[in-house]
């Protein structure tokens, strides 16, 4: 029943001025309006027994409907049928191209992939937000920035003594704290974070030799991931080797013991060698080979 005329209005608009101001406004003449309000009250009041009062009460009115209005029922049901009806994917995701298997090109990693997506996830998780100082990897920009500031900025400690410098880890929260302990309390209290949030770390760890943390973090990760003693075998060995920068190993041996094992630890990439960011081709190659199993 669609009218061609409507279609013309909507589609062939090049020649026509669609501005509402181009519409000639007819003269408004609402003479009866003034009396209408009175009528309304009168009619409502005495059920129209008064012969002279008009029962006609029409007034233009804009109607506001609330979320649970019955008029919205069908649309809501339709929406929820759609939501429950399986799945959503934009066209690009539905067709996953397979490519010939390739390895992660980052030296020292060399993990094998056969889809770009798998690689993309791997890259984002491990290589995107990496601190070039200590090779730790972080899940977001913000966490990396905070890490760099707190771990590698020499001014930070000095500044921190004078003013609050420890930023909250939660995106969108701009509060700063005097100590990392205060920050942790804030995270737990205000943001309801768990006390062992992995991307937080204690001030102690930081103010001592930086390199201690990775060792401990590895420990705590194993603790949280697997409680069985049998576990640690290959994985722990592997990661120890991976995280291996000279310092780290030295420190770990010198007993960075599980002092604070249950404490939250930074995450870092244990697959990327320490020195890579200086662009020395030879270093890449050497480290890379060593990592490969």
């Amino acid at each position: 029943m669609l009218q061609p005329e409507l279609l013309r209005l909507l589609i062939q608009t090049d020649s026509v001025d669609t501005d509402i101001l181009a519409v000639p406004v007819l003269q408004v003449d609402t003479r009866p309006k003034e009396s209408n309000l009175e009528k309304l009250s009168r009619v409502c009041g005495d059920d129209g027994i008064d012969e002279t009062s008009s029962p006609l009460t029409f007034m233009p009115q804009q109607i506001r409907l609330n979320k649970d209005h019955e008029m919205f029922e069908d649309g809501d049901i339709h929406r929820h049928l759609y939501l429950q009806d399986v799945a959503t994917t934009t066209p690009e995701v539905s067709e996953t191209p397979t490519v010939s298997a390739f390895r992660c090109h980052i030296a020292g990693c060399s993990q094998l992939f056969d889809t770009l997506e798998g690689y993309e996830h791997h890259y984002s998780a491990l290589h995107r937000h990496v601190c070039s100082g200590c090779r730790r990897s972080f899940p977001s920009d913000r966490l990396l920035d905070i890490h760099i500031l707190e771990w590698h900025d020499s001014f930070f400690q000095i500044m921190a003594e004078k003013q609050s410098m420890y930023q909250c880890l939660v995106e969108g929260c701009d509060l700063k704290f005097k100590t990392s302990k205060e920050r942790r309390n804030h995270l737990i209290k205000t943001h309801r974070y768990p006390p062992d949030f992995r991307f937080d770390r204690s001030k102690k760890t930081k103010s001592r030799t930086e390199s201690k943390a990775p060792q401990k973090s590895e420990g705590s990760m194993e603790v949280s991931v697997a409680t069985l003693p049998a576990v640690s075998g290959p994985d722990a060995g592997e990661s120890m080797e991976f995280c291996a920068s000279g310092e780290t190993e030295r420190d770990s041996q010198s007993g960075a013991g599980p002092v604070q094992e249950e404490q939250p630890k930074p995450r870092y990439s244990h697959k990327v060698p320490h020195t890579i960011c200086f662009g020395q081709g030879s270093t890449r190659g050497f480290r890379g080979r060593r990592k490969r199993k």
Partner: peptide
């Protein structure tokens, strides 16, 4: 529920699918 702080943290990550 214990996973929510991590799920929220990863929202700022770069992998679209994840």
């Amino acid at each position: 529920l214990p996973a929510t702080p991590y799920l929220l943290t990863y929202l700022c990550g770069q992998s679209d699918k994840f």
